[in-house]
Design a protein around this nucleic acid. Structure first.
Lengths: 152, 152
DNA sequence: TCATAATTGAAAAATTTTCATCAATATACA
DNA sequence: TGTATATTGATGAAAATTTTTCAATTATGA
């Protein structure tokens, strides 16, 4: 399968706004509506596009307080790691969790209402998970850039 | 405007899959197609939904190497901060940039092909920005959880 | 009770999807 | 080299589906 310049542009457009009609895209790409349709189906089939989602305004739903939490486990046995990852993935406030290199084991992105609810999250949800050694939290003062679009 | 339990469910569904038809949603929500249509329009109008996007598989487009970079500026004058933020936002490898509390000033999420291209990114793009004092990079070993959906 | 807001089903408009056909490109072969 | 033959991708028209509009009806709250 050949992924060409048109496919790249199409991915750009769909990453920016997936609600554009095939007719709009066909104008931008100088193709017929059917050609656009077939290319999109191909991108979906070949796994370039994972899914289509609505992005929600976190201010509007009262989840504008963003924190990053570093976490160290007390031990790194298979059992502890699997358990921790399973538990942390279940917490709705945790949108992202990465196993990372460096001083800490994990980096979490956490969305809550405010500092008070962050404390609630730490006490009631995060630190109730077993085997956590230490944590270190950083709070987002300002979101300078935030995109889901991969620019290839 | 009243945001009720049905709106919440609707936001959940649209954050999970925005390509569902209003008919499918109307079945799940036990509403008519038009009621679903009007509620979605309301969510868009009131700013609950920012936009609709396609999420791309980073493995498929060769951007599977994820790093988080901490950055400290040499100074924090208005001029330096503004300049840095403007420049870093332009770099396509940087998907996210946060001004954060703590030992470092910024946290960046960076997507590249591999370690070699990460080095290229650091040398050719990031550290060519003026006023950067120090950096500290962490590499993602495993993505345990990654969602764009805010669970309210 | 009245006014407002939300829901419904039907109709209209628009979009997606299918399909037969055509054009361009590469491949096989004499 | 030149010709026949798949193969791939594109096109426009038609069919199917979905979105959008609209008038009427039902809830909801002051």
């Amino acid at each position: 399968m050949i992924f060409d310049a048109i496919d790249r542009k199409l991915l750009d457009y769909l990453q920016a706004d997936s609600k554009q009609t095939n007719k709009e895209l066909s104008n931008k790409l100088n193709l017929s509506v059917t050609a656009v349709y077939e290319r999109i189906k191909k991108l979906e089939r070949e796994g370039y596009i994972n899914k289509y989602v609505a992005l929600v305004n976190k201010q509007q739903v009262d989840r504008a307080f963003v924190a990053f939490c570093h976490i160290k486990l007390v031990q790194h046995s298979q059992e502890y790691v699997v358990k921790f990852e399973k538990e942390v993935a279940k917490i709705k406030e945790v949108l992202e969790c990465y196993h990372i290199s460096g001083d800490y084991d994990y980096l979490l992105k956490v969305l809550v209402k405010d500092m008070h609810s962050f404390r609630e999250f730490m006490v009631k949800k995060l630190t109730t998970i077993d085997h956590i050694g230490s944590t270190h939290s950083m709070f987002v003062i300002n979101e300078v850039k935030h995109t889901t679009a991969i620019n290839i």
